[in-house]
Simulated assay, not measured.
Amino acid sequence: MPRFKAYNYDQNAMVVINYQDQLQPGTFEHAVHYLIEHKLDLSVFHPKYRNDATGRLAYDPAILLKIILFAYSKGITSSREMQWCCETNIIFKALSCDTVPHFTTLASFVSRHADEIEALFEQVLLVCHEQGLLGNELFAIDGCKMSSDASKEWSGTFKELGEKRDKLRGLIRHHLLEHHARDEAETEADLDRDIRRAKMILSLDDAMNKVDRFLKTNSPRMGRGKRIKEVKSNLTDNESAKMTTSKGTIQGYNGVATVDKKHQIVIDAQAFGEGQEHHTLQPVLETVEARFKKLGIAENIYQQGTVVTADTGFANEANMKYLHEQQINGYIPDNQFRSRDPQFADQKKQIRQAPPELTR
């Protein structure tokens, strides 16, 4: 038999590396590193820091941004996982200069600097324009459903939430009556049961107060369909919505992105707490127009021949009227477009005429 050199993966090794060498030109990590170091103005983050004279040193926003943006490019959105990557992954180590920000630091940076990060996005877009990466010939708009951290069990109309509060109040009264019916525990088992019942009463009381506070401090959410009616609110995240997806019902957001055709660069991304996409088209188009005007890319981008496309989820009469009035060259198919296409009609005819064993 041939003989081979033995190998063992379960071993440690000391390897001398240069972090700059790990960020090779032509890679995404190099692009992120170069943009943040040489092209972007990060002074927008400085006003929220208060450690000029006292307090410990803070992580440079450049380091945190590199970690977060590279993590996002890999589909990593958990701050804990980002911290783990900084401990174990060589590219993350190179981008972070071998620092390991705590996951709470990463999470806090994202939550505290939402406006500053949006301003940074506009800086990146301007760099893309200067480099000739934007074609401004065709913008494609599409959306996807994204889950939020809110529980859909805490959703409902104000009437439904009121009924939930009354039901919780009834359960509390029921358990209190049972508790008072027993003046004292006779056995250890009885004592354990009374303790469990007391904990349940406290939990129910907390839930009831949560619903009651929400109903007293908020107003019903109204939809924007043809017939305006109340939509379900959510106690945890009232900006999110209950929506149906191919994988079931979720509590979350409708993420809508606009992409420039030339190099598939995202020029706008927004999250809407609405299950339907109809009502998102106008605000998306207006945001893109305002951003391009603000950055000096185009005074009125849609009057320069830019074509806008979107799928059937954005098709309704109001949107067609809006596109016409604003003279926007938009292409949005309605739900019946396939039935009018001869190609699809011929395919359906062939399927109907095919033997049953070929259509299974």
Rank of each mutant, 00 (worst) to 15 (best):
A269E: 13
L125P: 05
L106G: 00
P61T: 11
A31W: 11
C86T: 03
R221N: 06
V124R: 10
D166S: 08
P220L: 03
L204Q: 00
Q131N: 12
Q264M: 08
E37Y: 08
I90Q: 06
N300R: 12
K199G: 00
K66M: 13
A271K: 02
A257T: 11
E239A: 13
A241F: 10
N136T: 14
K226I: 11
R169N: 12
A241S: 15
A354Q: 00
I68P: 01
S240R: 02
S78W: 03
I351S: 08
Q20Y: 11
Q282T: 05
Q336I: 01
A150D: 05
P356V: 14
R80V: 12
G75C: 06
N238W: 06
L235W: 03
I141A: 10
R56M: 13
P283W: 04
L126A: 10
G75I: 05
E274N: 07
D334K: 06
V124I: 14
E37V: 00
N18D: 05
R3M: 14
E184T: 09
L57D: 15
K167F: 09
T280D: 02
G223Y: 04
N300H: 15
K261I: 03
T88M: 09
S148W: 07
C86A: 00
F314K: 02
T244C: 13
Q327K: 01
G305R: 03
P25I: 00
Q353V: 01
G132H: 12
E325A: 14
E29A: 13
G313L: 10
I265S: 09
F4V: 02
Q282S: 02
L285F: 15
N319A: 03
E277S: 02
A53S: 15
E299M: 02
L202D: 11
K348R: 06
E137Y: 15
E160T: 00
P25W: 04
S151K: 03
A241W: 13
Q350Y: 04
L69N: 09
K247W: 09
A310M: 14
V44Q: 14
L285I: 12
L177N: 14
R56F: 15
I228F: 04
P355H: 02
A94R: 13
Q304D: 09
K216A: 09
I90A: 13
K226V: 05
G170S: 04
S147H: 10
